[in-house]
């Protein structure tokens, strides 16, 4: 801590308080909002999909996608109701550089982790699924064990139910 400059100390303290409040929220059963917008780069998908410790519902969204907020809301509610330790991950494909705006958005605040594309969209999409042409919302249910399932639009209720089953 002593080797940090003033802005770094400020950031450190901000993170400390955020982490503390996150822990308290977790203890009370409430979802913690994402603290930062993370870059979704070339290797991010492989790392997300590789045997996660918790099941993950990943929603690829765009700022002009009118169907996306509803799908994010629905998945967030399903996760909360189920009591499953699943994680909601939202990737805003055109959200680079818009951290302040996105972190204020009530839909995105339901995500456990929030990303924005960092790089050529066509290449990042291909790494997720070569057959995906950019349609949003694009939803991937990544179980803790087993293969991810890909959905154009909202995943069917039985698929979400199976995904969240302990």
């Amino acid at each position: 801590m002593s080797c940090l400059s003033f802005p770094e100390r400020f950031t450190y303290l901000r993170r400390l308080l955020a982490a503390a409040s996150g822990l308290l929220l977790s203890a009370s059963g409430a979802l913690a909002a994402p603290e930062a917008l993370r870059p979704f780069a070339a290797d991010t998908w492989n790392e997300l999909a590789r045997a996660p410790q918790r099941p993950q519902a990943v929603v690829f969204s765009t700022r002009d996608c009118t169907h996306c907020p509803g799908v994010i809301d629905s998945l967030a509610q399903s996760i909360k109701k189920s009591g499953a330790k699943a994680r909601l991950v939202v990737v805003v494909m055109d959200g680079a550089g818009l951290e302040a705006d996105l972190l204020k958005d009530r839909h995105y605040r339901q995500a456990d982790v929030l990303y924005a594309f960092d790089g050529a969209a066509v290449s990042l999409r291909y790494r997720v699924n070569p057959g995906w042409r950019g349609l949003t919302p694009y939803v991937i249910l990544v179980p803790a064990q087993g293969e991810p399932q890909f959905f154009s639009g909202a995943p069917p209720t039985p698929a979400v139910r199976d995904f969240l089953r302990p």
């Binding site: 993370r38 870059p39 979704f40 780069a41 070339a42 290797d43 680079a96 982790v113 960092d118």
Partner: peptide, 10 residues
């Protein structure tokens, strides 16, 4: 958590 998350915000 993916390692890419440690990079700066774009």
């Amino acid at each position: 958590e993916p390692k890419a998350a440690a990079k700066a915000t774009p």
